[in-house]
Simulated assay, not measured.
Amino acid sequence: MRSRTPIAPEAFVHTGHVLEDHVLTITLNRPERRNALNWRAYDELESAFRAADADPEVRCVIVTGADPAFCSGDDVGEIMAGPDGGIGQRKDSVIHRPANPTAMAALECSKPVIAAVNGAAIGWGVELALFADLRIASEQAKFSEMFVKRGLSCDVGGFYRLPALVGAEKAAELLFTGDLIDAAEALRIGLVGRVAPHAELMTQARALAARIAGNPPLAVQALKAGLRRSAFGDPREIGGWAMDTIYRLARTEDHKEGVASFLEKRAPVFKGR
């Protein structure tokens, strides 16, 4: 057990104060916004994964959210509601890079990552769960790749990981409809590996992480690298294409209508332009 640099209590992403059994827990910490991501939260999450990857004491990572949600995706009001669909507001934003750097930080982390999905995983919240190597869901968890409902496409996770986990046809159904599914359905189709009672979720996640962290770390990292190569290939090419596509769609009228209808709590009217 080793003390870590304290994280400011107002931080949107907590990495805890103690590294226990070589397992680091990353917790999204905007519960009042259902852990929705704004630019600052994206930056903090990227930094947390990069730091975990660089720390030789970290052998396994758990990513979760502060109850009641895992991650409800992009903060619509802060990211999507501005000019150019909001997504292009920052000159240094993820949309102006070859691939989403937060996604790449999660995908390129050499340590095994477990997603403990404690509640709703919506939009980029599903993507975050997909970036993990293993997923344990609370019985209260729900999942939706709802990008299509905002007139957008998904990030690299939906293209790179989802079809390999649930099959191409089921992935197409989830992406094209944006349907919401519960934990039982997620388990049935292979989106998650197990479902736990909500009160036992973190106990099960930590037990699994401890078993992984107890093995030789270099061998575990080599196994992870081999699995990624054999099952998924290189995510950067598809990640760059995904960012280009999101950037284009963010400037459409349908995207603006998807955001406006959400904020105004009404049914959208899409026009294909």
Rank of each mutant, 00 (worst) to 15 (best):
Ser144Trp: 01
Ala41Ser: 13
Leu223Asn: 14
Asp21Lys: 11
His17Cys: 14
His17Tyr: 05
Leu174Phe: 02
Phe262Arg: 12
Ala41Met: 09
Pro216Trp: 10
Asp75His: 06
His22Ala: 15
Trp39Tyr: 10
Gly190Phe: 09
Pro268Arg: 00
Asp244Leu: 12
Glu46Lys: 10
Leu24Ala: 03
Gly240His: 12
Ala51Gln: 10
Ile189Val: 03
Ala210Ser: 13
Arg228Val: 09
Glu108Lys: 08
Ala105Gly: 06
Leu174Ser: 05
Tyr247Phe: 14
Thr203Cys: 07
Phe147Lys: 06
Glu257Tyr: 11
Ile246Gly: 09
Gly77Thr: 00
Ser110Asn: 13
Ala168Gly: 08
Ser153Arg: 02
Ala137Tyr: 03
Phe12Met: 14
Ala207Thr: 07
Gly65Trp: 00
Ala11Thr: 02
Val259Asn: 05
Gly88Lys: 09
Arg251Met: 15
Lys91Tyr: 06
Gly158Ile: 03
Arg194Ile: 10
Pro68Val: 13
Gly123Ser: 15
Trp241Phe: 14
Phe49Arg: 06
Ala267Arg: 07
Ala52Glu: 10
Lys142Glu: 04
Arg236Met: 13
Arg188Gly: 01
Ser153Gly: 15
Arg273Gly: 14
Leu249Ala: 14
Met104Thr: 09
Arg211Val: 12
Met202Cys: 09
Glu145Pro: 00
Arg150Gln: 14
Ala207Gln: 03
Phe12Gln: 13
Ser47Leu: 10
Gln204Met: 11
Leu191Met: 01
His96Leu: 00
Val23Met: 08
Arg4Pro: 13
Gln89Val: 11
Lys224Cys: 11
Leu180Ala: 04
Ala171Gln: 01
Leu152Lys: 05
Ala137His: 02
Pro197Gln: 05
Gly151Pro: 05
Lys149Gln: 13
Phe270Ile: 13
Trp124Asn: 03
Leu24Pro: 07
Ala116Tyr: 05
Gly272Phe: 09
Met146His: 07
Ala199Ile: 05
Asp53His: 12
Gln221Pro: 01
Ala242Cys: 14
Gln140Tyr: 01
Asp84Leu: 12
Ile189Phe: 01
Asp84Gly: 14
Ala205Gly: 06
Ala66Phe: 02
Gly65Ile: 03
Arg40Pro: 01
Phe70Gly: 00
Ala36Phe: 07
Glu139Asp: 05
Ala81Tyr: 00
Tyr160Gly: 04
Gly85Ala: 05
Asp67Arg: 02
His96Pro: 04
Pro56Gln: 12
Ala210Gln: 12
Ala168Glu: 04
Arg194Phe: 12
Asp53Lys: 03
Gly233Pro: 08
Trp124Ser: 02
Glu57Ile: 10
Glu44Leu: 03
Gly88Gln: 12
Leu208Ile: 13
